[in-house]
Amino acid sequence: MKVTNVENVTRVYKIGEVETQALRGVTMGIEAGEFTALVGPSGSGKTTLLQLMGCLDQPTSGKVFVNGKDVSTLKRSERADVRRGTIGFIFQFFALIPTLTAYENVEMPLLLNGLKSDERKTRVMELLQAVGLSERAHHKPDQLSGGEQQRVAIARALAPKPTMILADEPTANLDTTNGEQVMEIMSKLNKETGVTFIFASHDPRVIKYGRRVVQLQDGLIVQDTIAKTNKKGK
């Protein structure tokens, strides 16, 4: 079953009188449980495609489906509802709320989904344990390293048990060791929980983790390959 698919999607940004065509007619689908890398140079349309699949943006033309539902023309509040329950996000900047602790950041989507206090506590600690940060639960983002912040962001993305997690350049601001660690965790969680991961990157060290690699160039898919093995042969 496809968790998301896009059909002949275009996206044109208009800044003043200048129009930029970020996507020129992309069609693709992502099956449940995939660990897919969107690759390509800057301006190829990776981030735009992720944003459309994540209901953060709407296409200029074409259709976007999430879990079989057409989300292309939903209103802002309806898109927020779709995101809240089914999609998790990891951004290249460590997108945590700076005034909340690691625990509270992970707890936020659960609060938005109306989970009870004891259920939230169990889930948050379980997730922080999974990303190796249970000891740092009550630290605020500025007391955590970049790698730790990104691991908290992974835990937060997983919190509401989404069907897919979209990661935009998740290691771009991390050193090699932390970048590797983040990718290992994402890969492990994908296998353990079955949640679909779609990540955009142009870093070869990240791309090699992808079990499916979709290459974009100038707003079009130019290659879509299934990797036989990833770097560790998994």
Binding site: G54, F91, F93, I97, M108
Partner: peptide, 13 residues
């Protein structure tokens, strides 16, 4: 940015 993050994780307007 924080408003964008909150909105992204599904916080309503």
């Amino acid at each position: 940015r924080e408003i964008g993050i909150l909105s992204a994780i599904g916080m309503r307007s």
